[in-house]
């Protein structure tokens, strides 16, 4: 069987010590999605850090669940600090929990690259996170449409009211205190999070939409935001 070398950009989502001198890391790459890579001897290397939020040019051998990384050159090193660092850890935890291994996901990689760039630039946190969460849902096979009423197939009307039905979508209802405004849903469909109300609804809806993908165990990174900024 041929075992040719593959080259891809990639981010390390998480790494753990493996044997004496190596790391075993969760990698996100565009064409091969999430995979586990062994970085032989990487723990002994001085300064050549293997860390999250660095985009590497990776080369690896092997196929299937675990590959052997033969080289990793730093392409871009993003510096994430304080709550932007928490947010980056949140994104990594989301991917590891929600995205199945080896699902090719170029749009997700692109969205992650954009999100990390935004976090390093200290953009407003919530739009960055919500845009990424929507892509993750889509790439995990659950395309939640914010601009259609799933019962009728009609486009969401700005002046009508809706409710969110998990795993399905939005349906039109009479105006109640917790009904979602069509105008807000359309803003989310456009990833336009300028208004506080849009940010509040998007966070709430996406959180329950992601729930089935994440399982019952709570996300550990959500605890970090306690008391500081509840962006997730």
């Amino acid at each position: 069987m041929t075992d040719r070398q593959r080259r891809q950009p990639g981010y390390v989502l998480h790494r753990r010590a493996y044997r004496e001198t190596s790391y075993l890391a969760d990698i996100l790459s565009p064409e091969f999605g999430r995979l586990a890579g062994v970085f032989r001897g990487a723990r002994k290397k001085q300064g050549g850090s293997l860390e999250p939020f660095i985009r590497y040019g990776l080369a690896w051998h092997g196929k299937g669940q675990m590959v052997t990384v033969t080289s990793y050159d730093i392409e871009i090193e993003h510096s994430l600090r304080d709550r932007y660092l928490y947010a980056g850890l949140y994104l990594n935890e989301l991917i590891v929990r929600a995205l199945p291994v080896e699902v090719s996901a170029p749009p997700l990689f692109h969205a992650y690259d954009n999100a990390i760039t935004g976090l390093a630039r200290r953009d407003t946190l919530e739009p960055v996170l919500r845009t990424f969460e929507r892509t993750l849902l889509r790439e995990s096979g659950y395309d939640l449409l914010f601009n259609y009423d799933y019962t009728t197939g009609d486009v969401i009307a700005p002046d009508r009211y809706y409710r969110f039905v998990p795993n399905v979508g939005f349906e039109s209802i009479q105006k109640t205190s917790d009904a979602l405004s069509g105008r807000v849903l359309l803003a989310i469909a456009d990833d336009d999070y300028a208004k506080t109300e849009t940010r509040r609804v998007a966070k709430h809806v996406l959180r329950s939409a992601l729930k089935p993908l994440l399982g019952d165990r709570p996300l550990a990174s959500r605890q970090f935001f306690r008391g500081s900024n509840h962006a997730v």
């Binding site: 998480h14 753990r16 590891v96 165990r217 996300l219 550990a220 990174s221 605890q223 970090f224």
Partner: peptide, 9 residues
């Protein structure tokens, strides 16, 4: 703190 390893505060 290591969310993916489940280590919280």
């Amino acid at each position: 703190l290591s969310p993916i390893d489940g280590v919280g505060p």
